Amino acid sequence: MPGVTVVAVHRDAEHRFSKQPVEEIVLLAGLGVKGDAHLGVTVQHRSRVRRDPTQPNLRQVHLIHAELLDEVSHEVRPGDLGENVTTRGVDLLGLPTGTLLHLGAEAVVRVTGLRNPCTQIDGFSDGLLRELVTRDEAGHVVRLGGVMGVVERGGVVRAGDAIVVETPAGEPRPLEPV
């Protein structure tokens, strides 16, 4: 896939909605993004911790395709929606569950599912949630807020790094919210 790249990387040590742009992030195998509030083996998202703090953290890394930011009618920059990695040139939402994303020279993230956008998005920009959670012609909910993954192999990721997509063998399983 030509032109499949990392546009920007972000992290934030606090549980804020948007993440700060940085020169590089360090992915730690089985944990997530070093220095990010969502780092951990078990779930770190506050609403999920309240429900069951022992759940595995299937949301260690959040990825959004820059094409989404280009399409929405709101002013949204990379990192504004809380993603760790902004990509370009790969249909993240069309990937099957278990796809491996090789980011840069070393890091590998396994896609676990779809981000389930929440009402905090309207706190960032009123009405944006309606653009990120829509319905298809059959009336099924369509989530456009990116994908979540876990770190299979650690490494440094920077803007401009290539992304290599490795789909899993066997029957593809569509992404579901995690």
Rank of each mutant, 00 (worst) to 15 (best):
E83L: 10
S125T: 10
M148D: 00
R48V: 04
E171Y: 05
A169V: 14
E166Y: 07
L63Q: 02
Q44W: 04
G35M: 05
R11T: 11
C118P: 06
P96S: 04
V109P: 00
V164W: 09
P174D: 06
V111L: 01
G113K: 11
T134P: 02
R115L: 01
V61M: 02
L63P: 00
R51H: 11
L103H: 00
L63R: 00
D91I: 12
G98I: 13
D122L: 12
C118T: 02
S125I: 13
D91N: 14
P168H: 15
G89F: 10
Q55S: 14
V26S: 05
V33F: 09
P177I: 04
I121S: 03
F17Y: 12
T112G: 03
N57K: 01
V151M: 08
P53Q: 05
V164I: 09
C118Y: 10
V72D: 13
V157M: 03
G30C: 11
R50Q: 09
G98V: 01
G82D: 09
L103E: 05
I25P: 01
P21M: 13
L68E: 04
G32L: 08
S47D: 06
H74S: 07
V7A: 07
G79H: 02
P53F: 13
D126M: 15
A159G: 15
G94N: 07
S73T: 15
G79F: 00
E24Y: 14
V7N: 05
D36E: 06
H74R: 13
H38G: 01
A13R: 11
S18G: 15
E176Y: 08
L128K: 05
A66V: 08
P177T: 07
I64E: 01
L68I: 12
E67H: 11
R130V: 04
R110E: 06
V43E: 03
V85M: 05
P177M: 06
G104S: 04
R77Y: 12
L103N: 01
Q120M: 11
S47G: 05
E71K: 14
R88C: 11
V85E: 00
A159T: 10
V108M: 05
M1K: 06
I64V: 14
V43R: 00
D91S: 15
L28T: 05
T86D: 03
G170K: 14
E171C: 07
D136M: 12
L114T: 02
F124K: 09
P96V: 09
N116A: 08
H62G: 03
V111C: 01
G145P: 01
G82M: 07
S125F: 11
L129Q: 03
V76H: 04
T99M: 01
V72Y: 15
A105V: 02
R48M: 09
L132T: 07
E67M: 06
V151C: 02
G170L: 11
D52P: 12
M148L: 11
H140P: 07
G154E: 03
T54I: 02
E166D: 13
E67T: 14
D122H: 06
K19A: 06
E106F: 08
N116D: 09
E166K: 08
V22A: 08
R48P: 00
R158A: 06
R88V: 03
A105F: 08
Q60D: 04
K34L: 09
V142A: 10
G170M: 14
V111I: 13
G89S: 13
P56T: 09
G123K: 15
